[in-house]
Write a protein that binds this DNA or RNA. Structure first.
Lengths: 311, 311
DNA sequence: AAGTTTAATAGAAAAAATCAATAATTACTA
DNA sequence: TAGTAATTATTGATTTTTTCTATTAAACTT
């Protein structure tokens, strides 16, 4: 007994004709006839009296067709569950994301996401942590992707991944001599750092424990909002900087030589999707989170063996 | 989406293991895995999270599996309809049948009937019309097969077929000269007739309009209860008799030469299944009737162009 | 009684389900 | 943390099932 066979007998009952029923089912008449016969065989009863025109269901046929209609109704409900779900997955999703995360994760998942959920319109804006929090509270965006913990009681954090910090050092730097480093090895004098307003600036300062430069003074200051710029400063000048590990993707061999990992427990940041406590668009945000997780390597999904930096 | 696929996902949900589920469904694990995947493809959603052990249904998977269980329940009900019906088709069916019908119809359908309904025990007894009516009223038998109409208000008649009477005449008889005959042609003197108590005797007398023999007298009387004996009397002696047409089946060519049909409207008898007004065992009796109809030629199912004889 | 409509049947082709063998993951354990 | 065991996915061959076209058989209509 198959659902198709039940559809066929319901059609025959409805149209009282094998030819008409076959047409409505988009199959040929022999196909439908054989399937009806097969069902009659498996059930062991005649469902239709074909001896006169129009064909009529037998007494037991009426009972079974009635039940078949019920079953087909239940099968429709399964499809409804899917379409209902898809409705929840349509509309706009406004996302605020911090600039130190955005370039390393969004481009990777954007294509897959819009492919998977064509009914969702993603509206992404790069903002600082502070702005994102404000907009979340005002309901101007649906979720934020940023570094946590925030200690904001009105917001809920859904941790997505843990990303280690690494040092990126020029050949001239003392750090270059070591295989693995500790925060104590860092000379604040030579470190390129993001400008104010970026939470990652605070995290990096935390790593370095806000130590004063041991000797001399910084000969110049350069303020940037972009991690990529920090990297280029090291590449084209001297000194060192701290990068999130996802920024290493796409480095060439020469650049990878400049990477120095911290000794365990490595300093790291927690990246979360942050939402209002009474949040809507659960499904869409869930989908976004899953899409991110799918792209990330497994090791980044656990807090273990790291020291998560405060903001 | 097939019922089998739904069975598979319910099994996986129940056992939380593809291997165990496959075993319970009596298929191999790859078979089950592929069908689950196919269902996931057609629905366009992941139903199970296989990334950890034991496998767990996804959020939407839970909804769909719940609905699948409902659907499978409805599919069980279809089978129940059949088994319920079969219960109604089991037990004893006591049938009373008149001797002038019994030998020509019962042997033909008996084999097919017990084949088709192995749970039914048919208990048949040959009786005269009078006895059958009595036993029906007393509930000692479930139905009677006899010639109608009876004019018994407490009984219901379900006409099954109409059987013409034909003349069976020896070479010596005047009737033998004619191709078709009329009742007026019959000479009561030479007619062999059933003895008292058989309704067919009355019907044959009605055909002959109880005419007195025109001349001479009967030199001997022979009383029999069997139509077959009447036939042999004609074969081995002289004279003529009246037979029901089903008695012609199995005659050889020489015997068929002795058959003379009446001019239209041919005299006929109505044979019915007779039951009590508030009758039980509907299904079994219905089945018996259908079995009889299946064996009978189409022309015997209609009253047309006949004159139904009273009893 | 001839022509039309309708369902059944036969045979071939396409599609699908199943299995055995094996690969890839994930979990467990020393 | 490496190695083993258990579990699910994949592959390719085989069998089963479904579907189609062409035709036959039966019932209905005129």
């Amino acid at each position: 007994m198959t659902i198709t066979q039940l559809e066929y007998i319901v059609a025959v009952d409805t149209y009282r004709s094998f030819v008409a029923a076959a047409e409505k089912c988009f199959v040929t008449q022999p196909t439908l006839s054989m399937q009806v016969q097969k069902l009659e065989d498996t059930l062991g009863v005649k469902l239709f009296d074909r001896s006169k025109q129009p064909v009529t269901p037998t007494e037991i046929g009426i009972e079974i067709i009635t039940q078949a209609r019920i079953l087909l109704g239940e099968s429709e409900k399964i499809k409804e569950i899917i379409t209902d779900r898809q409705k929840e997955l349509s509309g706009e999703l406004k996302v605020g994301i911090i600039p130190t995360v955005a370039p390393y994760i969004l481009p990777k998942i954007l294509h897959g996401f819009i492919e998977k959920y064509p009914q969702v319109k993603l509206i992404v804006s790069e903002q600082t942590t502070e702005t994102i929090i404000q907009q979340l509270k005002l309901g101007m965006i649906d979720c934020g992707i940023l570094s946590t913990p925030l200690n904001e009681s009105s917001l809920t954090e859904l941790p997505v991944f843990y990303e280690n910090f690494v040092a990126y050092v020029s050949k001239n730097s003392k750090l270059s001599k070591k295989k693995t480093i500790t925060p104590e090895d860092i000379d604040m004098e030579e470190i390129w750092i993001l400008n104010e307003g970026h939470c990652m600036r605070e995290q990096v300062l935390n790593i370095c424990q806000r130590r004063k430069s041991t000797q001399g003074f910084k000969h110049f200051e350069y303020n940037t909002g972009s991690v990529e710029t920090l990297k280029r400063m090291v590449d084209q000048n001297n000194g060192a900087t701290i990068l999130p590990e996802l920024a290493l993707a796409g480095l060439n061999d020469k650049q990878l030589d400049k990477v120095r990992y911290f000794k365990s427990p490595e300093p790291a940041r927690e990246v979360s999707i942050v939402i209002q406590r009474n949040f809507l668009k659960r499904r869409m945000i869930e989908a976004l989170k899953n899409e991110m997780l799918e792209f990330l390597p497994k090791r980044m999904k656990s807090k273990k063996k790291r020291e998560v930096m405060d903001i």
